[in-house]
Design a binder for these strands. Structure first.
Lengths: 129, 129
DNA sequence: ATCAACGTTCCAGTACGGTGGAAGGTCAAG
DNA sequence: CTTGACCTTCCACCGTACTGGAACGTTGAT
């Protein structure tokens, strides 16, 4: 299948697919006599894996590692477990950070609602930030 | 005060201060006869405001808007309220997204712990992603 | 006079995941 | 034979907030 078909079948764009190739996520596809990329049909699954990995918050670099393991004939299971547990920890940290930030912003916002603009001191930018 | 002093006093770097200037966050400072930037001492407060705004998750562009209001003689209170409430909504969305993602990753990870590598089908990349 | 420590400008690069566009080649239909 | 849709490569750019480094000028102490 040609690159446009693959893009359609996977909900991506030809630009993105070439970018994935340049990023080392795709095996180099064979070419037709005229130089067009000619993908095997199971490439659809590979793209699907890439998109699901992204949905799980993995970076393209991490997804690439998994694919390279797989391409090298190794079952990437252990590595995937490792990446997922790392991701889980990152998520917990990110969520905790955002919750703390939410508290801060919330209290700034509350204060901003009770303050009179006329009370602004001229020598500071904003009395509640 | 010179740029290095200001950087020291605010915990930033001279690079960052020049970058803020180029980004339009700083009023153009006067120069000494030899061309050095010569900041009024209350610039410290302005940098402090910028850093606190960043801590609240505002972008430099948003902080710039507030500063421009202030520099233009307007009390930026209403605008700050607007930005803070927008930020609050964004935070809620981000937190909700991350919590949902955490659920997804958590369940993928749980499955990954119970699966036997030998069960991997050769025609797919990974059976649990 | 010399030296370090400061200052200046300007250009380029970082990470991330692409997107835009130019300049050209190919293919199938009408 | 032409048209339009597809494909190719390559280079540049998006946003965000800086950071690094080159090449050169200034200041203050010794």
């Amino acid at each position: 299948m040609r690159i446009g078909e693959l893009a359609n079948a996977t909900g991506t764009t030809t630009k993105t697919l070439r970018f994935y190739e340049s990023a080392g996520l795709m095996p180099i596809p064979p070419r037709t006599s005229s130089g067009y990329r000619d993908y095997p049909s199971d490439t659809v699954h590979r793209i699907g894996f890439i998109r699901r990995g992204q949905s799980a918050g993995l970076t393209l670099a991490q997804i690439g590692e998994i694919l390279h393991n797989r391409d090298g004939g190794n079952a990437p299971c252990a590595h995937v477990q490792f990446l997922l547990s790392g991701r889980l920890k990152e998520l917990d940290d990110q969520i905790a950070d955002l919750l703390a930030l939410r508290e801060t912003v919330q209290s700034l916002h509350s204060v901003s609602l009770t303050v009179e603009p006329a009370a602004c001191a001229p020598n500071q930018v904003c009395q509640y930030i």
